[in-house]
Simulated assay, not measured.
Amino acid sequence: MRLNVVERGPDRAEVAPGRPPIVLLHGLFGRARNLGHFQRRLAADRRTLAIDLRNHGDSPHGQMDYMAMAFDLVETLAGHDALPATLVGHSMGGKAAMTLALTRPELVHSLLVADIPPAITGHGSSRLGRDMLRIEFPPTLSRSAADALLTEAVPNADIRQLMLQNIRFGENPGWQIGLQELVASMINIEGWPYIPEGHAYDGPTLFLAGGRSPYIRAEHHATMHRLFPRHRLEMIEEAGHWLHVENPARFAALLEQFVDEF
């Protein structure tokens, strides 16, 4: 599946030799432009591609699992002559990035994973998806009315602002994302694919964890070390799972330090 891509950066001739493209992958219910602030910073001197993963943004819809999402990334990035690449993924996007790194390591220059382990996870996403699916839209809808409509299902105001980007306003409002497909695929999204014994990604890897997030836990460290032996883990104390929203300055500093290092 060819995915929608938002590309930014200087003319390719101006990018220093050996600097790989940086690919930004959003989390569940997100879209490429959610990472626009960081993409614009990186694009000052690097080629960057922010991607709408399947069922998100302006990309096609379909049933999903992480192997399929990794294939989507290979097809899309190959079509943009953007491999090998540095992959930066938050949550679901981080799992897709890890899957690609583990199955096609030659295509991944380096890897940053934001607040998700290589493991089965799930902290309310299934319930949230079902709650969103049950929302009944009126015949017409403004952004302010949509904000009120989402308040019960999405009480966190910052996260709700991200969710509002997935709604079609005006006449005949509704979800732009493939919400039915997402809810049907949630067991795969919250899961983790089978990785055959012996597979590992030996490239530079940085895990970022939110200090208030329940996702990356001590019980995951052994698996992280086995699959990503060159990884390091950094904690962003003043943040939860949406660490790039809750502490964007610290997230940007660690991201930029990592991509400049490798």
Rank of each mutant, 00 (worst) to 15 (best):
E7Q: 15
E14H: 13
V15L: 07
V15M: 06
A16C: 06
L25M: 11
G27T: 10
L28Y: 04
F29Q: 05
G30N: 07
L35N: 02
F38E: 02
R40N: 12
R40E: 13
L42C: 12
A43D: 04
L49H: 07
D52N: 08
N55V: 03
P60C: 09
H61R: 14
G62A: 12
Q63I: 08
D65W: 08
M67L: 15
A68P: 00
A68H: 11
D72Y: 04
D72S: 10
V74K: 11
V74Y: 08
E75F: 09
T76A: 14
A78L: 10
T86A: 14
G89Y: 00
K95C: 07
L100K: 04
T103W: 01
P105I: 10
P105Q: 11
V108L: 08
H109A: 13
L111D: 02
V113T: 03
V113K: 02
V113Y: 01
A114L: 03
I116Q: 00
P117C: 03
P118N: 06
T121F: 04
G122W: 06
G124N: 10
S126F: 05
S126H: 12
S126Y: 05
G129M: 09
G129V: 04
I135L: 15
E136C: 04
F137P: 02
F137Y: 05
T140A: 13
T140G: 06
S142Y: 08
S142M: 10
S142D: 12
R143F: 03
A145V: 00
D147N: 12
D147W: 07
T151Q: 13
A157N: 07
D158C: 06
R160D: 07
G178I: 06
N188K: 11
N188E: 14
E190P: 05
E190S: 11
G191S: 13
G191E: 06
P193T: 14
P193S: 11
Y194V: 10
E197I: 12
Y201K: 05
D202G: 14
P204A: 14
P204D: 13
T205H: 10
L208M: 13
G210V: 00
P214A: 10
P214E: 11
Y215P: 01
I216G: 02
I216Y: 05
R217E: 14
A218D: 15
A222G: 13
H225G: 11
H225K: 15
R226N: 09
L233Q: 13
A239K: 03
A239D: 03
G240R: 05
H241P: 03
H241T: 01
L243P: 01
H244T: 04
F251V: 02
A253Y: 07
E256R: 10
F262D: 09
